[in-house]
């Protein structure tokens, strides 16, 4: 799977270099600056991940979020996703690591979709712009969408059998 990412990145780079060397160089600078800015936060996330994975036995993770957790795992993931605020560059690597620990795609999809679209902590801000009623409806709709996405993901990846 990684090989596609390398091919796409290489192709994008080649096209970019042909179009403008200056812009490509600027892009490299942006990428490097951001990478080193993010690195400390990223390493701390990995440390927390390594520590909690070591002390939480595999059975506990399996029971809470694993393949046999069913609707329960999706429910936990959606609640956590709705409450937490986490930038994508932390959330997706974390999900990738959890995937390696046997957490199903379905559960991770419930987490990431609610994380991106349902905001309990951003509620006060949202209410200022949209008003209370619309804010509640919007978040409700997005939660429903996240659950539908999770179910379809489960079906596509063969995690739910009909």
């Amino acid at each position: 799977m990684h090989i596609y990412l390398y091919i796409i990145t290489a192709a994008a780079l080649v096209v970019s270099v042909i179009a403008s060397r200056k812009k490509t160089l600027a892009a490299f600078k942006i990428a490097a600056t951001r990478f080193f800015k993010v690195l400390p936060v990223f390493l701390v996330m990995l440390i927390l991940f390594a520590v909690s994975i070591t002390f939480l036995p595999n059975e506990v993770i399996g029971k809470l979020l694993g393949r046999n957790s069913g609707p329960f795992g999706v429910a936990i993931a959606s609640v956590v996703g709705s409450i937490t605020l986490m930038p994508g560059f932390i959330a997706f690597p974390l999900c990738g690591a959890l995937l390696g620990k046997g957490v199903p795609y379905m559960v991770l999809s419930a987490f990431t979709t609610t994380l991106m679209n349902v905001g309990i902590l951003t509620y006060p801000l949202e209410r200022r712009y949209l008003g209370r009623g619309v804010t509640l409806v919007r978040n409700g709709v997005c939660l429903a969408v996240a659950l539908i996405v999770a179910v379809v993901t489960g079906l596509v990846f063969g995690e739910i059998r009909l």
């Binding site: 990412l5 990145t9 892009a27 990428a31 990478f35």
Partner: peptide
């Protein structure tokens, strides 16, 4: 992660540029 992270950052930066 290090196998993926640099590619992701380069792609995003190219997009921004």
């Amino acid at each position: 992660m290090m196998k993926l992270l640099p590619c992701a950052f380069v792609l995003i930066a190219l997009f921004d540029v």
